[in-house]
Design a protein around this nucleic acid. Sequence first.
DNA 1: CGTCAGGTTGATGCCATTCAACTTAGGTGG
DNA 2: CCACCTAAGTTGAATGGCATCAACCTGACG
Lengths: 262, 262
Amino acid sequence: MAHPLIRKLEQFTRLSADDQRLLERVTSEHVRRIGPREDIVSEGDEPGEIHLILSGWACRSKQLEDGRGAILAFLLPGDLCDLDNFLLRTMDHSVGALTAVTLAGIPRSLFEDLMLNHARIAQALWSSALIDAAIQREWTLNLSQRTAYERLCHLLCELFLRLRTVGLTQGSSCELPVTQAKLAEATGLTLVHLNRMLQELRAANLVVLKSKTLTIPNLEVLMSAALFNPAYLHLDQAGEASDTAAAVPILALDERSDGLQL
Amino acid sequence: MAHPLIRKLEQFTRLSADDQRLLERVTSEHVRRIGPREDIVSEGDEPGEIHLILSGWACRSKQLEDGRGAILAFLLPGDLCDLDNFLLRTMDHSVGALTAVTLAGIPRSLFEDLMLNHARIAQALWSSALIDAAIQREWTLNLSQRTAYERLCHLLCELFLRLRTVGLTQGSSCELPVTQAKLAEATGLTLVHLNRMLQELRAANLVVLKSKTLTIPNLEVLMSAALFNPAYLHLDQAGEASDTAAAVPILALDERSDGLQL
DNA sequence: CGTCAGGTTGATGCCATTCAACTTAGGTGG
DNA sequence: CCACCTAAGTTGAATGGCATCAACCTGACG
């Protein structure tokens, strides 16, 4: 499978062969593996590196003083964990591994070089930061307006589409290596209620979820149940002068579902 | 009152006199005024300008297909409305004026020049974009974990502190030129319930709110009721080599409250 | 002095939480 | 290979925070 970061950035600009080699080199020098539940960066510190996820899942999370806390974002292969550290003084939240994670550490000085002397790469990195912000806005809307059921549908749609852009789906399936407790933290629901929503989703045959594998029999149906509008993911950017514009269809993916469709 | 953008950016870097002049010029060429309820940018379009708020309040908002919608952010003087348009193809949400707003339009080409050829300015603008993202994360946490009451406290704390960094507070007071309906849209509550929370806040003497003026008798008490941790606003950045580091105290602002303190 | 936006109040109901138990699956050591 | 252990998932019943529906009040303005 291609390098997830390059794959992701190529959504935004066509990267030259030089740029690609540079990215590969930069992200292969300080690679380390960490286990589930370990922290990648913690609230308060300002590490000297920017971290990129090469494989595995992580999450941004933040706690209130009294212990309540939430997952604010899922981080997938190709995602940067702590762009904040490039310009801000301290982390205002934590990033933790949900599974075993392979991590590339990019020293700040190197990262600065990328941002200052490689316009194409810089543009793509900032684009992806803007999209992360758009995702965060959509999560805000989620919590504010969607029902528990819609919220869960929406989250699953988003994860599936994001995984697909980095080549981590197989047909209508993908890995979902997280517990229901984590999905609950991300949707702002209790574990108990999330479980019930998930069962409704299964009963309606909108998803099949077994042994950490998610299958979406009919993505369009799930999307409409979620009131999902993929615009916020900006999947259609396809860097100017790109010659692969029509490569990935966004919506047309339904392997015929054989169950009832709500 | 000083230029709100310059005032805001000076949190992050000391800007040279040249940089300041440049910013002043760039933000004074396409100034226009719009009335409350008018849109500044709308979902779907890609205007040729980046918009900056010089005075007045605006909000980011997003709707679901069935009409439900939410306010995702408040935009105050010094805030950019649509940085998205600098790198992304289309707006995935709208920005609308809440009051009469004075707006500076910065042509894309000019903005690009700022970003590419004026490192200090670019760094400050991106820093402020990262902080906007941090604010969005905090709003996510708000909706996910804080109670209605805490949420309202938190919003008022945030607005007050943000207004203070651009010099729009007077002592423990500031303008709050929005209706309860808008506060409800921003906190994910119904108008009715927001009204009740506000009354509780008044009864506890945590805020005084009359004729669009908000007074916070004791900010520390309000902050603790909100479980407010100002770290996410990164108010302490005070650009390296800044000589005004100790200028603005963050927490020490309590005019003695004369009411009961929870 | 009528009108309308903004604000306030009461009654009722539901979505999601809470508490508490139970089941299942996966892993580990005897 | 079974006994045990723990994490993960499931189910039931009761409670409550916030929504909903529906009035009513208030002040600003023409």
